[in-house]
Design a protein around this nucleic acid. Structure first.
Ligand SMILES: [Mn+2]
Ligand SMILES: [Mn+2]
Ligand SMILES: [Zn+2]
Ligand SMILES: [Zn+2]
Lengths: 141, 141
DNA sequence: GTGTTACATTAGATTTAGTCCAAATAGTCT
DNA sequence: AGACTATTTGGACTAAATCTAATGTAACAC
């Protein structure tokens, strides 16, 4: 994602493009690894400009709220984040907790009857199992 | 869920039916509210037999591992639990974090190609938006 | 420009959710 | 009964995230 594109999307969402905010976006845009808040905090602080822990969390919260970033809750582990670019599904490893992208495909929506008066914003499909690294080795089991 | 049924399912999973364990299962079976661990802990301790916090968490972990109970991670909030009875999807409210059951319907699996060497255990479909209580009132917006 | 205001950042304290530990208890088996 | 194993327990501990109050910075009005 280009510098200008990040700037644009921040301003479109009514968020100032501060160095700290930009750094979070740039790091997420460059990463396909669904980092945790702490990982983002550390990565951003390996070089200038610095960003405090509170700011990193604040910015992640704002970016999620603006719809630019997605937060993925993983049971028993820290939340992970990714930038909302191309639509995709997620695979979460039972064993190591890693979150991986799965190519998007369409899923049928629920019947209006089943939703009642709820207001639907999005459907999220999550696959669970063992990632390539954690899958049982060939003959075993 | 009947007393005997709970006993059965525990024993089938190789777990002793202790009073504390039973109490967790019985509470979950009777509740449709996806309680948090703390709520379960408090509910179980409103009457005998008592169960410590550590035991409640231990038992929830064991029950999830045995596949009898499901843990639902909710971003920014405590995990919630429900008993694995009839298959169903979940609706999570953006506003209040409540988890509600949505009638089951089948969803297409991903292409084998998209999964690669990963081992798929299950697909989970989560709907997000505003629950009935938090939905914007009629004319507004 | 100067002043005003709203938005952002910061360090550190605090809270929340959950885990760990070592000792005590209670089943199960022979 | 005695040995063995699973389970429970209180309390210390940890990790993740939020809160607070002070400070800094950018946009807007004049
Ligand atoms: Mn992703
Ligand atoms: Mn449910
Ligand atoms: Zn894995
Ligand atoms: Zn709600």
């Amino acid at each position: 994602m280009a510098v200008a594109a990040i700037k644009q999307s921040l301003e479109n969402s009514g968020l100032r493009c501060t160095p700290q905010r930009y750094a979070v976006m740039a790091f997420l845009a460059a990463s396909h690894r669904h980092p945790t808040a702490v990982e983002i905090f550390e990565a951003v602080n390996r070089v200038d400009p610095r960003s405090s822990r509170a700011t990193t969390y604040n910015n992640l919260r704002d970016l999620v709220q603006a719809g630019l970033v997605r937060e993925v809750a993983v049971e028993g582990r820290a939340a992970r984040f990714d930038i909302k670019g191309l639509r995709h599904h997620h695979f979460i490893c039972d064993h190591c907790g890693n979150v991986e992208d799965i190519e998007w495909y369409n899923i049928p929506r629920p019947a209006a009857r089943a939703l009642g008066k709820r207001v639907l914003r999005e459907c999220e499909l999550i696959f669970r199992g063992r990632c390539t690294k954690c899958a049982p080795r060939k003959a075993s089991r």
